[in-house]
Amino acid sequence: MTIAPKIELSGVTKSFDEKHVLRGVDFSVGTRESVVIIGGSGTGKSVMLKCILGLMRPDSGSIKVDGQETSKLRGSALDAHQAKFGMLFQGSALFDSLPVWRNVAFKLVQAQGVPPKEAKERAIATLASVGLAPDIADLYPSELSGGMQKRVALARAIASKPEIIFFDEPTTGLDPIMSDVINELIVKCVREVGATALSITHDMASARKISDRIAMIHEGRIVWQGKTQDIDHSGNPYVDQFIHGRAEGPIKMQVRKL
């Protein structure tokens, strides 16, 4: 790769008690690139994102963001590191005690000290960019459908224009049409904000649509990575089994949770 990587992981391991979730992940994401990580449930995808975000500490290995080692940051350095990120959570994770606009403007108001009036205007503008009308700004998250909540969560993730956005299973639990709407919004928003995107999913339609590059994780290691258009002739038995959704193959289903 010619451009310097935005995120670079080498030899990252993480275990919980006896369970080795990450067993040496080597992986990088270029600036303004959109990478999707695919893999079955319980293969360490979420743990990997949380390690990069600094919500968890890896046991060994290095995680660099913008060339800076982040796995041992503390205090205000960790805050500065985390400020680069926006994240769309699997279950949206909207704050149910706050109206929609306060959710979207949360970082602007709480962390950047934008006055509420201006923050609300910016929240409404961000909501418009994900196709939501201004009148939902004063509703509470519980009054919205799952698809609408996802859009609000997307608006919240992009509102502060982060350098890096993580998408944790952005289409899980949505119908195929709403999934496609969210996928299109993700592509559009990432381009508009000019962000680097890293997503995890097991929805192949979504992965194909939003990614420049796909990596497959299995049993805590990256087993394949390549351009999105090469995924159908990867020659990798794990990838073939996964994208065709076959029960038979090298991947044995984990029955117990990792």
Binding site: G54, A93, S160
Partner: peptide, 14 residues
């Protein structure tokens, strides 16, 4: 359990 606490961290709020 609904990841709202993790969401706070990603929104630069301790």
């Amino acid at each position: 359990v609904t990841e709202q606490i993790d969401a706070l961290t990603t929104l630069s709020t301790n």
